[in-house]
């Protein structure tokens, strides 16, 4: 009897895992709940375990920085000069802007609040681009909120626990973000494909896009506010690719921002997921 059980364990477990992997797509909600609880429980462990890694990478960073202090200093002096000029321009524009606002009685967008979050886990897989951060519902984070670094957009919250949130990076194959090309106001979608540079897909190309064009969110769909910096076009041969401003491979801290938007449907408000093999994206896209 014991021998039979032992002989059947392997085929049984292989069958169960294959079944789960195939069905998982059909019943995401159950897994979502399990994994949120698990992530919440293990968050302190991951955070503590991550500390030495942060220390080591900081040390490496310090050594690298020390080596380039002189050159950087020269560069900074130049950059500082340039920025002083820009500051001058900004001051002038600010006062001009204020005058014009007074003129048209323009009301600026609603209050914005943000929470800083530490990255505690990285999916690290070949076909996944997401991160786990150490803030959640208890800090007022809700699903769909954008995550930013000082450089630009990182992604948005797709899963929410009490103390953790999972952020789908804009490079993930399930990420679709409505964007515009700055200057031409050409609307497009920025679709991740798990590579470091997501693809820009146009609806109706009128003005050709060229390397160096800046991409910002369009605000369509109500998930992201308009004009968040996303990235810069780097190649246009056949596939248009965008290099995100944020360094997605080395995220340590992100800011999750509440713009008071509610473009993402709450849990349970979604229709049943499509049958297996039917849909290509697991999560609701930002359309």
């Amino acid at each position: 009897m014991r021998a039979t059980v032992q002989r059947l364990t392997l085929p049984f477990l292989i069958f169960v895992s294959a079944l789960l992997a195939v069905l998982g797509k059909a019943d995401v909600l159950l897994f979502d709940r399990v994994r949120v609880v698990l992530a919440d429980t293990l968050a302190p462990v991951l955070q503590v375990a991550g500390e030495p890694i942060v220390t080591v990478s900081k040390a490496i960073g310090t050594v690298k920085e020390a080596a380039s202090v002189y050159r950087e200093n020269q560069e900074l002096k130049l950059a500082n000069q340039r920025l002083m000029q820009w500051q001058e321009v900004a001051r002038r524009l600010e006062s001009e802007n204020e005058e014009l606002r007074n003129l048209v009685k323009f009301a600026p967008q609603g209050a914005v609040s943000s929470v800083a979050a530490q990255v505690i886990a990285d999916s690290g897989g070949a076909f996944l681009r997401n991160i786990l951060v150490n803030v959640g519902q208890s800090e007022g984070v809700t699903r769909g909120q954008p995550a930013l670094t000082g450089d630009g957009l990182v992604g948005r919250v797709i899963e929410l626990g009490d103390r953790t949130a999972r952020i789908l990076l804009l490079t993930d194959i399930n990420s679709h973000i409505p964007v515009v090309v700055e200057g031409t106001h050409e609307r497009a979608m920025l679709n991740g494909d798990n590579s470091d540079q997501p693809r820009l897909v146009y609806f109706q190309p009128k003005t050709p896009v060229k390397p160096g064009d800046h991409i910002v969110t369009s605000g369509s769909g109500g998930v992201f506010p308009p004009d968040l910096p996303v990235g810069v076009v780097v190649s246009v041969n056949g596939v248009i690719r965008v290099e995100p401003y944020a360094d997605l491979a080395r995220l340590e801290m992100v800011r999750i921002v509440n713009y008071g938007l509610d473009g993402v449907l709450p849990d349970g408000a979604m229709p049943a997921p499509p049958p297996i093999g039917g849909g290509r994206s697991r999560t609701t896209s930002a359309r």
């Binding site: 789960l20 998982g24 797509k25 399990v34 999916s123 996944l128 899963e159």
Partner: peptide, 17 residues
Amino acid sequence: LLNGTPYVGLSALVLLL
């Protein structure tokens, strides 16, 4: 479950094999 894959069970399958 922790890496957020839509294919829960895939790693289990691979490791068993």
